[in-house]
Design a binder for these strands. Structure first.
Length: 241
DNA sequence: GAAGACACTTTAAGAGCGGA
DNA sequence: TCCGCTCTTAAAGTGTCTTC
């Protein structure tokens, strides 16, 4: 449930007159609030004060919103490194066979990949789906998987030559989507653009996933829980060993 | 001129290391 | 062991280029 749907739900639940509702909506839209106050508590309390919304209705809407946005908290992570760490932990949590790499496991390891599975080097990348046209904070512009809003998830600093398999974690407010693909599949993807950083000689690229092209990754989506098997199969497809 | 794609910068925080 | 500094990492944000 995105914010616009929440607002619609609140308005639909209001049993007062249209004039009363429009008056409150105008009032709220012109209001300026700061944490911990916000336009939604203002809207709800105003409608309750008018007698057109009950406390129980508010609780029902609140419960529904919370249950339909289980991953909204991830959009409150402000630091890129913390979010990246979340993605790595999330991926690793899907199988105990996935190990954090170290020189003990791989003598040549120098932080160039994130996870290890019996010799398979795995790079974990993550991005959050947010409204591309909004400048609001991430947790405000967070989108759901079936969104109609435009979004741009930029998987960047991709180095296919440093790993065998990529795990991409795409976070929506209601769902986390995982794509597993081989390094060569990333390198050969028509959306992959080489040479993100100046002087990189084209060995670091990025790939832009938008509302228009996200369907092209359907074939790589982790549908079942067996990430270990999916990674092994992806590694077999990797032609750049 | 607008929109989309691409290239690059910024920002926040973790890791590592040396000195007190 | 703690503190502070530097380096590294990662994704969000933004500027620029390209195409229509």
């Amino acid at each position: 449930m995105e914010l616009i749907e929440l607002k619609n739900k609140i308005c639909e639940s209001f049993t007062g007159t249209t004039d009363e509702l429009n008056h409150v909506l105008t009032l709220v839209s012109q209001d300026r609030s700061v944490f911990p106050f916000n336009e939604y508590e203002h809207l709800i309390l105003s409608l309750i004060a008018l007698g057109g919304l009950t406390y129980n209705q508010y609780l029902e809407i609140r419960t529904e919103y919370i249950s339909e946005n289980p991953y909204l908290w991830i959009f409150e992570i402000s630091a890129p490194t913390t979010f990246g760490k979340f993605a790595q932990t999330y991926a690793q949590g899907k199988s105990p066979a996935l190990k954090i790499p170290s020189k003990k496991i791989d003598a040549n390891f120098s932080n160039e990949y994130d996870l290890w599975l019996d010799g398979i080097k795995i790079e974990v990348k993550a991005s959050r789906a947010v409204n591309a046209e909004s400048t609001d904070p991430l947790y405000v512009k967070a989108l759901s998987r079936n969104t109609k809003q435009p979004f741009l998830m930029n998987f960047q600093q991709l180095k296919p030559q440093c790993c065998n398999v990529f795990i991409w974690v795409a976070v929506f407010r209601d769902e986390i989507v995982v794509w597993v693909m081989s390094a060569s599949e990333v390198l050969g993807n028509p959306l992959f653009s080489k040479g993100q950083h100046r002087g990189n000689s084209g060995n670091e690229g990025q790939l832009h996933i938008t509302h228009d092209n996200i369907h092209t990754l359907n074939q790589y989506e982790l549908k079942d829980a067996n990430i270990e098997q999916t990674i092994r199969e992806a590694a077999k497809r990797n032609v750049h060993k």
